[in-house]
């Protein structure tokens, strides 16, 4: 982990030399330069990045829960292998992203504890339950697709370690998308039972998916600053439209219907999907930890963290070279 150095002083408005440093920083970022861990950066830039990367990492390890639950039930050897690999990737992304956040001075243990205590957030979609096998198909296709739109954009962002981590994440997510699409094709072209399961899953998941990219630009509070510093390159609505333009036609091709209450319709002139705006207050309530299974997700994370404590303590002791005496019956040489 990077220690906070003198380079990170004078990083708040009003500090000596702050305005000059900020101007030089913004000029750099504006040229498309990457900001690296030891570089000077405004405190706000660092805080915003920690917040975003932390939420992103949390989302990866919370995202492993709804799908991980279904690995034991995967209905063919091929699906079982692919699902296990996918969830493993998500955990790996969590590890990678916690490391990226650590370059900004926040330790992983602290981030995981903030997640468990409910202080730190994670993606809205993982506050909902995965009720059937079709939910796993919808998550792997449509939620990963929505995530790729977001992550491919963030991968072009100004902070080097996050940008590089996301390049790898996107590379792996592309496989997940193929796996998800393939599963949805099997379901959509399968028996009536399978088609009904898939439609039922879409009916339940469409709202969280429509909310995935965050509040409408009219309501989003962070976007302006994040775009000025090239942390984020597209607004929430731009990302949502990109997702809808690409995937709604594919859904229609598979015979999947989007629930009628959304009144989804395509505006040819503006190349945009029109729909009834979701209730963004509900979104905020959900991500604050009041979604249908928020409490269960955090309880799962808390229990698994708690049960892993002895492993972390033992590894730490081993790393420091601490050893307990051998039992008398053993005759090890070390």
């Amino acid at each position: 982990m990077v220690q906070i150095t003198e380079k990170w002083t004078n990083d708040r408005p009003g500090d000596a030399g702050y305005e000059e440093r900020l101007a030089a920083f913004e000029a750099r970022v504006g040229r498309g330069d990457k900001v690296e861990p030891g570089d000077w950066m405004p405190r706000d830039y660092r805080d915003q990045l920690i917040r975003l990367i932390h939420v992103h990492a949390n989302s990866e390890i919370c995202g492993a829960l709804p799908e991980g639950t279904w690995i034991p039930h995967a209905p063919s050897l091929k699906r079982k292998l692919a699902l296990c690999a996918k969830v493993q990737d998500e955990v790996g992304h969590g590890q990678l992203l916690y490391r990226a956040a650590e370059t900004l001075g926040k330790p992983r243990e602290e981030m995981i504890e903030e997640l468990i205590s409910g202080k730190a957030k994670y993606s809205n979609v993982f506050h909902y339950p995965a009720e059937t096998w079709a939910d796993v198909c919808v998550i792997a296709w449509l939620i990963d697709a929505a995530a790729i739109v977001n992550q491919a954009m963030m991968a072009e962002g100004s902070y080097g370690p996050y940008s590089r981590a996301l390049k790898r994440v996107c590379y792996e997510e592309a496989f997940h998308l193929t796996h998800g699409y393939d599963m949805c094709i099997s379901m959509a072209t399968g028996s009536k039972l399978q088609r009904d399961m898939l439609q039922d899953a879409v009916n339940r998941w469409w709202k969280p998916i429509m909310m995935f990219h965050g509040p409408s630009d009219k309501e989003s509070t962070h976007t302006t600053l994040l775009m000025r510093w090239r942390i984020k390159l597209k607004t929430n609505d731009e990302q949502r439209q990109e997702f809808l333009r690409k995937y709604v036609p594919k859904m229609i091709n598979l015979g999947i219907r989007i629930p009628a209450e959304w009144e989804m319709r395509y505006d040819e002139k503006n190349r945009a999907w029109l729909y009834n705006e979701p209730d963004w207050e509900e979104f905020k309530t959900v991500v604050r930890g009041n979604g249908p299974v928020s409490a269960k997700r955090l309880e799962t994370r808390r229990l698994s963290h708690e049960h892993g404590r002895w492993v972390r303590e033992a590894l730490a002791a081993a790393a420091e070279g601490r050893k307990i005496p051998l039992p008398p019956t053993a005759y090890a040489t070390n």
Partner: peptide, 20 residues
């Protein structure tokens, strides 16, 4: 199957990944 029961809930991320 048994080892994959740990996927996503392992004691540390590195071992979660190893068991998967």
């Amino acid at each position: 199957h048994r080892n994959s029961e740990w996927t996503g809930i392992g004691p540390i991320l590195e071992e979660d990944i190893a068991f998967s």
